[in-house]
Structures are given as structure tokens and as C-alpha cells.
Design a binder for these strands. Structure first.
Length: 423
RNA sequence: AGAGAGGUGUCCGAGUGGUUUAAGGAGCACGCUUGGAAAGCGUGUAUACGGCAACGUAUCGGGGGUUCGAAUCCCUUCCUCUCUGCCA
């Protein structure tokens, strides 16, 4: 959520930056400031009257103690009059506050200065490419054929148990998932991240804080009986650890990592793009999250990008890093780098990680603050990234490491899997 | 799921309708004292909104109500603990 005070002081800049994100209603900036003016005015007159009521009430207490009933009664009448004035003010103020809130939540985060212009994924900027594309054996297959051939994942039975997009991992496929999770978590904790295992369902307040609600309600599974949401990413529960918290400056940076299954309803895509493990409703992911001093978030974003890159390099997969353009970025993000690995058999790039700096967009929404050296309260910055999303890594390894007789494994994973080859 | 007890400041904890402007204690910070430390003494120690400021307003888990006045009374909801039940 954007801060009104910021919009007030940077009206034109805000509009300019919203345009980079292709935000359709720049005039909403003016609406918000007008509503805030109205709120201030209402509060001033409300406070003034309420102050009179409070001091008169105290007086009544003193008069009663003295036994001056007559004067006490007279004061009561006066207070009654003021309270009548208060009623409509209170109602109006509540309405203005709701209107203001409803307007504010519509703003996406403003893009960082480094964000390139552009509308669609084609306009994302290639930062760098790494790794080597493997020479596949003749008759190389895509992962959806390989997992069938070697009985690693059974989509049909998953669909029978639940529905389409809920894969059932079997035997070595299941063990391989476990090995990946374990490896990613160890890799992250070795870099200083603290491991968490969070709840996989969250309440509405948490979903609001990280920006899933109110707009993206349809993308989450909702357990209506208890009003809980299945998490679309561990970012939601883990970032919410620090909702309504005032930290000490010395606590920063906070570095967290968490494994969780992720649940996404994501309606809308068809065909080859969603085949096999490319897009599913339930998948596993290991996430990294940081809460940092606002002066440090640019630097930390680079650290996180370097961290994920190192992890990909250790898996020996061909990858590229993209800086997302304004039109392709997420709602809450100020700047995002996407990681893609090359699927040799599908001959296309698969997104496996997305690392973003949210600056104060989430922390303002969830009131995550810290007290600086001067004793002033400031909003922290939050960042997160996947490290890594499993299904597409699974797919990429299966495809890129296929041999004539089976599937090999990156060195880093062999001890975790307990064998030199997957098959 | 049933019955009961609770939720107060950074922490512990008092407070059952009106000088509570939330007692008292601990912790922390600063100062005094000291050769240095401890002890002692003093001062300070929540957040949000409005205001140049003085200050005002709100907040005792959340929401609503009664009252001139609510931490305190009523309703509702969430959470924690104990016992019982069920359960991996």
C-alpha cells in the first residue's frame, strides 16, 4: 500500500511512475489526497468536541463528589448536546476512512528507477545468461513423457484423488522432491537464513498484509467454514510473522527461509505451456524472505539474486536472469528479477524463481516497523524470492540430465538423493 | 467438541463506574554518586491520527452496546491455559 503522505508530496512523480506500471486511473492520486484532506478536517472538529465532552464529564464527577447536584445536571445537558453533534461526524469520518482505504488498496507499488519500460514479457530485459545447454541424446523426450516412462509422477491418479493439476509423485519421483527440498533449505541456511516451517493456511488479515487480498482473492483456495486461505507461497505466512511488530534496528536484517507446498487456483492458461509440471495447482517451493533497513534493500536484492544464481549454477542448469519491465511486474513489487532455466527438450525457458524488492509496500500494509538509532519509527523494507520452485526444476533436471539409459543427477544432489543417478 | 479460568505498558502485576493523568515492581537509557564496579538516588522509558507548537483525540485482545463518564457493567468474537472427549 502506498502512503498518503508520499502521494501528497510527490503527486506528479507518483502519476508518472504509476504509468510505467500501466495503472489505468492516475486521477485516483488526487481523489486520495482530497479524501485525506476531508478526513483531517473531520478529525479536527471531532477531536475538539470530544475534548469538551471529556473535560465536562470529569467536571461532573467532581461536582457529584461535592454534592452540587444541580450544576452537575446542567452540565449533563450540555454534554448531551455535544454528543448529538458527534454522531454524524463519527459516521462521516468512518465512511471517509473506508473510501480512503478502498482507494489506497487499488494502487500497485511504484516501480524502482531501474525498472525498464514495457508492457509485455517480450520487453523484459536480459541481465545475463549462464550455464551450458546440454547435448541431448537422440530421441530426447520432454519431462511429461519421461516421468511417465520412469513412473515418477502420476497426473491421472492425482486427478482422480483431487483434480487436475494435483500431481502424485511416486517412488524415486517422491524421493527426488524430498532431496530437492532438503538441498535448497541447507543451501539457504548455510548462507545465514533461518529456517521456518509455517502454517499452510492463513487468515484474511495475513492474506491482506502481503497483498493477496482484496484483489487476488480468486487465485487462492478458500476454506470458507473457518475463513482460512491455503497459502499461494510461504512468503505469506513468513512475512506475516512481523505483522504489527516494532523491531529494533539491530534486529535487521532478518533472513528467513521456508519450505511449503503452494496452492494456486490460477485459472486461464491452456496448451503446451501448462503441460506436465509446467503449471500445477499444488507445488512445492522453498522461499527466501528478508526484512531489512530501507537504505539496504537495493543491495540486499542484488545479494538475493546472486544467491539464487549460485544455487542454479550448483545444479548445472542453463539459466538466464531477466529484469522485468513495468508491465510484467507483480502488483506489490518495486523491482523484480526472474530466473528461467532452459528446458532442452521443450526448447523453451521455464520460470523457476522470482526475486523482488517490495520496499515498504507490504510493510506499510502490515505495520512492520523498526526503531532507528534516533528513536524514530520507520517502515522496514521486505524482499523475497524463490529458492527455488520445485516442479520446473524437477522438469528441467529430468530433461537436461536425460541419458540414453536413464537420468543422471547434478553432483550437488547426489548425496541428498543417495545415488549418482535418478534412474 | 463440552466445562471452567484468563487476556492490562518492553516484561511481571494491581486495578469491579468518577483526582487512574493505568498503582507497584523488574528491565532498559541517561544523569548523580564512586579510584573503578555494585548498591543507592534522580530522571526518562508505547503506538496511531490531528496540530508549527503547546497540546488534543484514540487505544487495557478485536468489534458493538449501556452511561454525563468504562480497563471496570452488558453483548459478541478471537486467542491462551486447565480438565473431559476425540484424534496423528
Amino acid at each position: 500500500m502506498l502512503q498518503v503522505s508520499f502521494l501528497r508530496q510527490n503527486r506528479d512523480l507518483a502519476k508518472k511512475k504509476l504509468a510505467i506500471k500501466h495503472f489505468a486511473q492516475p486521477d485516483l492520486v488526487d481523489t486520495v489526497i482530497d479524501l485525506d484532506d476531508e478526513r483531517k478536517q473531520l478529525q479536527a472538529s471531532f477531536d475538539e468536541t470530544q475534548a469538551k465532552v471529556n473535560s465536562a464529564s470529569k467536571e461532573i464527577g467532581a461536582l457529584m463528589a461535592k454534592g452540587d447536584k444541580e450544576k452537575a445536571e446542567a452540565t449533563k445537558t450540555a454534554v448531551g448536546e455535544w454528543k448529538k453533534q458527534l454522531e454524524p461526524l463519527k459516521e462521516k469520518m468512518a465512511q471517509v476512512e473506508i473510501d480512503l482505504q478502498n482507494a489506497l488498496v487499488q494502487f500497485p507499488n511504484l516501480p524502482h528507477d531501474l525498472v525498464p519500460l514495457g508492457k509485455s514479457p517480450e520487453e523484459n530485459v536480459l541481465v545475463r545468461e549462464g550455464g551450458v545447454r546440454p547435448k541431448l541424446p537422440a530421441g530426447a523426450e520432454a519431462h511429461w513423457d519421461l516421468i511417465k516412462k520412469y513412473n515418477l509422477v502420476d497426473f491421472e491418479t492425482g486427478a482422480k484423488i483431487t483434480g487436475s493439476g494435483f500431481p502424485l509423485y511416486i517412488g524415486k519421483g517422491a524421493k527426488f522432491q524430498r532431496a530437492l527440498v532438503q538441498y535448497f533449505l541447507d543451501f539457504n541456511t548455510a548462507a545465514g537464513y533461518t529456517e521456518y516451517l509455517p502454517p499452510f493456511m492463513v487468515n484474511a488479515a495475513s492474506a491482506f498484509a502481503t497483498g493477496q487480498l482484496p484483489d487476488k482473492e480468486g487465485q487462492m483456495y478458500h476454506a470458507t467454514e473457518d475463513d482460512f486461505y491455503l497459502i499461494p507461497t510461504a512468503e505469506v505466512p513468513v512475512t506475516n510473522i512481523f505483522r504489527d511488530v516494532v523491531l529494533k534496528e539491530a534486529d535487521l536484517p532478518l533472513q528467513m527461509t521456508a519450505y511449503s507446498p503452494c496452492f494456486r487456483r490460477e485459472a486461464g492458461s491452456f496448451g503446451k505451456e501448462v503441460r506436465g509440471l509446467n503449471r500445477v495447482h499444488q507445488f512445492e517451493k522453498v522461499e527466501i524472505i528478508q526484512i531489512v533497513h530501507p537504505d539496504k534493500s537495493d543491495e540486499v536484492l542484488n545479494d538475493m539474486v546472486a544467491h539464487v544464481e549460485k544455487l542454479l549454477v550448483s545444479l548445472g542448469l542453463p539459466y538466464r536472469i531477466l529484469k522485468l519491465c513495468g508491465g510484467d511486474m507483480g502488483f506489490a513489487s518495486a523491482i523484480t528479477y526472474d530466473f528461467e532455466v532452459y528446458s532442452a527438450a521443450q526448447e523453451r525457458w521455464l520460470e523457476v524463481s522470482s526475486v523482488s524488492n517490495f520496499q515498504a509496500y507490504q510493510t506499510y500494509r502490515m505495520k512492520c516497523r523498526f526503531k532507528d538509532a534516533a528513536g524514530k519509527i520507520q517502515f522496514a523494507h521486505s524482499l523475497n524470492g524463490s529458492s527455488l520452485a520445485l516442479p520446473r526444476i524437477f522438469a528441467a533436471i529430468v530433461e537436461n540430465y536425460q541419458t540414453e539409459s536413464g537420468i543422471a543427477l547434478p553432483k550437488a544432489l547426489q548425496s541428498y538423493f543417495g545415488a549418482e543417478n535418478l534412474i
